[in-house]
Design a protein around this nucleic acid. Structure first.
Lengths: 161, 161
DNA sequence: GAAGATTGAGACCTCAATCTTT
DNA sequence: AAAGATTGAGGTCTCAATCTTC
């Protein structure tokens, strides 16, 4: 049974499978690269970036979750693993006893600073060195449009409850 | 510490974070949608598509892995779960005793045929209804270029061993 | 009750090791 | 030895339930 071509044009179908394939392979490649060269998983790296960009290397859990667009539960599990390996440390929050600060350890800072240049270089080499400014602009615009549709869709789903 | 803007232009960085965010949220949204409406995970759906497109609803394990670009191990674990739920069945191969056929069950076919129209409609609504033919063409071309670079990169890594 | 956060169960993925057949 | 495929261990993600504090 042909399940897809009835609903998407050939060009759309090619673009869709291409996009999904590209991001899947890109994620896999970058993740392996990171792991081999620094011992960090892609998830570790994602969490370390906002922490290292924060002035004092500390953020509330919900701030990290917000910047990454992660669910709290996912982040909490990830932080448990990272704490176990000494990349971050949990600290209570004085002004709001419910909350917790996540603090980048010295070891964590050392690892991310060592890993970042190579990672960004890989992204540049694999993606952006081959693209024209027009293509970069097109990508940015497409991403914004699709994200806006997702916002709409999820807002109207929330209403329905 | 600013880890990214030293190596990517602002436009590139926006496009990169936009693309990654878009695919992450799109995957999450489509996965939840599929799960709610049909009980299938995204991984289940991915496996069922090539099987349902095959003339007799049966493919060798390595054929499925090839079409999806999955590692054999990943697929094998997935097939174990799908077999347990009765979506597919394993059958030995006469002509090559090492191999195995994966056969779509009646239940599996019923589920995928029920799930596919809604899934494709969601993709159309969230992505393609908002894009011009030019944007679709741009996306396709970018995907091809990046995939080609990944092929190069992985080929030269393989040489180095 | 809602917000901030954690936990446990179960599904999923990767890596390395294994087994069988070619 | 290489190809087809499976297995086990350990990391990761989601969902629902929970706990505490606001």
């Amino acid at each position: 049974v042909n399940l897809v071509t009835e609903w998407l044009t050939d060009a759309e179908q090619r673009a869709w499978r291409g996009l999904m394939g590209m991001t899947a392979r890109l994620d896999a490649h970058l993740g392996r690269d990171l792991q081999e060269r620094s011992g960090l998983s892609a998830a570790d790296y994602a969490v370390l970036v906002p922490l290292s960009e924060s002035p004092d290397g500390r953020l509330r859990v919900f701030e990290i979750a917000g910047r990454l667009g992660w669910e709290q539960s996912r982040l909490s599990h990830q932080l448990t693993r990272m704490t176990r390996r000494g990349l971050v440390r949990r600290e209570g929050c004085e002004s709001d006893r419910r909350g917790a600060f996540i603090v980048l350890t010295e070891a964590g800072r050392a690892v991310i600073e060592e890993a970042a240049p190579g990672h960004v270089a890989a992204v540049r080499r694999l993606v952006f060195d081959g693209l024209t400014p027009d293509q970069v602009a097109a990508l940015d615009q497409i991403a914004r449009q699709v994200l806006a549709r997702l916002d709409e869709a999820e807002a109207s789903q929330a209403d329905r409850r």
